[in-house]
Computed example of a mutant assay.
Amino acid sequence: MANISMTGRCDCGATAGPLGMCVDYYHGILAEEQSDPQMYRWHAPVVVTYLLQHPSRAHEKYLDDQFRQLQLYVDQGIDALLRLAAHQVARNNHRARLDYDMAPLAAYAPLPKGEPPGHFCASFSGLPFRDGSFVFDGHLAYGDRIKAIAEATVESWRSVQS
């Protein structure tokens, strides 16, 4: 069930959209990705953005790394994030047995301590959904919308006082 406060808002501060709360959009995106390899390119930013907007659904020990990954994505784009993921997978194969490489994320700020933001300027429940799809107007437009939510997430987290 979605995390909804007594005010009828999601724990990220968003109100329900036509499909429901953010969790409904998140599950819809994950389902649609399964049949659309181009849409799947944005899987990692979708997941980390959702978890950073809804930290009660995340594992706290991973949120700092996820925040740094999201900053890399906002700063350098989807191709840089996909290269990082491929690099980490290659390091994690059974022959290499290397630890996670934090060097590519070292330049990015850690997750601020304290309470998570109570509101984000863009959220999942604001995503348009037409003709049974989130990519009704193309993959690049969908990617732009995911990036806007990611940017709003980074901006809100940066405003948290440590």
Score class of each variant (00 low, 15 high):
Cys10Ile: 04
Gly138Gln: 04
Ser133Ala: 15
Gly13Cys: 04
Val89Tyr: 06
Ala31Thr: 12
Pro18Gln: 09
His27Lys: 13
Leu72Lys: 10
Ala150Thr: 12
Arg57Gly: 02
Asp79Val: 06
Ser35Ala: 11
Asp101Ile: 03
Thr15Pro: 00
Asp65Glu: 09
Arg130Glu: 15
Ala85Thr: 14
Gly118Trp: 00
Glu115Tyr: 00
Cys10Thr: 05
Met21Gly: 00
Arg95Asn: 08
Gln53His: 07
Glu60His: 13
Arg91Gln: 10
Met21Glu: 14
Tyr108Ile: 10
Met6Trp: 05
Gly118Asn: 04
Leu111Ala: 00
Arg68His: 01
Pro18Ser: 12
Pro110His: 09
Arg158Ala: 05
Tyr50Arg: 08
Pro110Asn: 04
His119Phe: 15
Ser5Lys: 12
Ala103Leu: 06
Ile78Arg: 11
Leu70Cys: 09
Leu105Glu: 03
Asp36Phe: 05
Leu84Cys: 05
Ala103Gln: 09
Ala103Thr: 06
Ser56His: 13
Ser56Val: 14
Tyr100Gly: 08
Ser35Asp: 08
Ser56Asp: 15
Arg91Met: 09
Tyr25Ala: 01
Ala141Thr: 11
Ser5Gln: 10
Ala109Ile: 06
His27Ala: 14
Gly118Arg: 13
Val154Ser: 06
Ala103Cys: 00
Gly138His: 02
His94Val: 08
Gly138Ser: 06
Ala103Met: 02
